[in-house]
């Protein structure tokens, strides 16, 4: 892993976030709508074969922002389809994203038990 990897991660990750901010400020979509939009766009770009090259270029810069969730779902579905056909297509997406989703539920719950809102 070289400095170049970090630079690309910074630039691509930053640009994705900047684009989302632009959407919020210009269209006045709520952040929730924007997040939904970006996840869906990630899925679309993934199916078009455009997101995978981005992850190869930027590493975490492409896999940490939310569109990668759509990407991971699509890639998982396609991989499932290769293995088991149609049923794999349906199940593969959530299989591929099970780790971060379960981490989110588990830690979300744990945090709620441990902490109280501070305001």
């Amino acid at each position: 892993m070289s400095l170049t990897n970090f630079v690309w991660a910074f630039v691509v990750g930053g640009l994705l976030c900047a684009a989302a901010q632009l959407v919020v400020d210009v269209t006045r979509l709520t952040p929730a709508h924007t997040m939904v939009l970006f996840v869906s766009l990630g899925a679309a770009f993934s199916a078009l074969g455009l997101y995978e090259p981005l992850t190869q270029l930027a590493g975490a810069g492409a896999t940490i922002p939310l569109p990668s969730f759509g990407h991971a779902l699509v890639q998982g579905a396609l991989e499932g389809a290769r293995r088991e056909g149609f049923l794999g297509l349906v199940a593969g997406g959530l299989e591929a994203t099970a780790l971060p989703l379960t981490a989110a539920i588990g830690f979300g719950y744990l945090m709620a038990v441990v902490f109280s809102p501070r305001g």
């Binding site: 996840v39 899925a43 993934s46 779902l73 579905a77 297509l89 349906v90 593969g92 997406g93």
Partner: peptide, 11 residues
């Protein structure tokens, strides 16, 4: 919407 969009796109 992630799951739905991904399902549609992958299909």
């Amino acid at each position: 919407y992630g799951v739905l969009a991904a399902l549609a796109a992958a299909a």
